[in-house]
Nucleic acid binder design. Sequence first.
DNA 1: CCTATGATCATCT
DNA 2: GATGATCATAGGA
Length: 197
Amino acid sequence: MKKIPASFFQSHQVVQLAEELLGCELCTTINGVLTTGIITETEAYAGKGDKACHAHMGRFTKRTSVMYESGGIAYIYLCYGIHHLFNIVTNTKGNADAVLIRAIEPKTGIDIMLSRRKKSKLDKTLSSGPGNVSKALGLDKSLNGISVCGEKIWLQNTQKEPVNIVKTTRIGVDYAGEDAKLPWRFYDANSSFVSVK
DNA sequence: CCTATGATCATCT
DNA sequence: GATGATCATAGGA
């Protein structure tokens, strides 16, 4: 059980980071309730040079400002008016890189996640897909900008068996032209908790 | 199996 | 006023 330090997220290699996060355990304590899950799917967003990133071409707005902070904090925003998407900001201050968590495999507090998702049975839809991950873990935009090495959100390296990593293209970013084809999505082929295979 | 559609709102133009 | 790093559901092939 090793808590991952903020320095880990300050690497300049977002894409590599996204890959390394597979298999780590994402933990949250919201309203005093603990829920955790193993990360099974991620995507990398490489700041300025990436058209699919909210901060491409150095775009700086109120929403994207947290992405320019030093790595190790959460970037959570509302998408399509309904879903909260959870990202981990990476790289050093001034670089707007982030890793989107797209799916987890529920581990601790499964009953809590079921009730948050209004489900009665555990299946892959409980926590696969970025909107569902946030909902299951109880994350919303009020937590935007807080540390991912803190009391409410943290990650730990529980490396179980090696994951079978697959690299592929990102999802829902067709508008990004050439950048939509980059193989910056990673998932664990051994897990059924993956949004799209 | 597949494609189409509604939900719903903070942020940006 | 338009739009999106999505999801669940409905209906047709």
